[in-house]
């Protein structure tokens, strides 16, 4: 089961320079909430910004990670 720190580390590794804050939303280890600030979001609409983050986890979203609620920002 991933921890908020695992999820943060994976987002930051996949999007170099990004800053992510991740919390376990329900305490159950499968609903997470993340705020991600990344230069890579520049010029993308929200959908594509979120896709960049979702793509880090692929099929884990909806599987072991039941939900990853996102807020994305350009620095």
């Amino acid at each position: 089961m991933p921890s908020p720190d695992d999820i943060k580390a994976r987002i930051e590794a996949a999007l170099p320079g990004a800053r992510a804050e991740v919390e376990d939303w329900t305490g159950g280890g499968d609903h997470f909430r993340a705020t991600v600030v990344a230069e890579q979001f520049e010029g993308l609409n929200r959908i594509d910004q979120h896709r960049l983050v979702y793509d880090v986890f692929g099929a884990e979203i909806g599987g072991p990670i039941h939900a990853l609620s996102l807020k994305t920002q350009v620095p």
Binding site: R46, I47, R51, Y54, A59, I61, G62, A67, L68
Partner: peptide, 16 residues
């Protein structure tokens, strides 16, 4: 190309 539910489409486009 969106992994989670719900998904809202307006005029054929995924809005979020």
């Amino acid at each position: 190309n969106w992994p989670t539910i719900p998904q809202l489409f307006v005029k054929g486009e995924l809005v979020g």
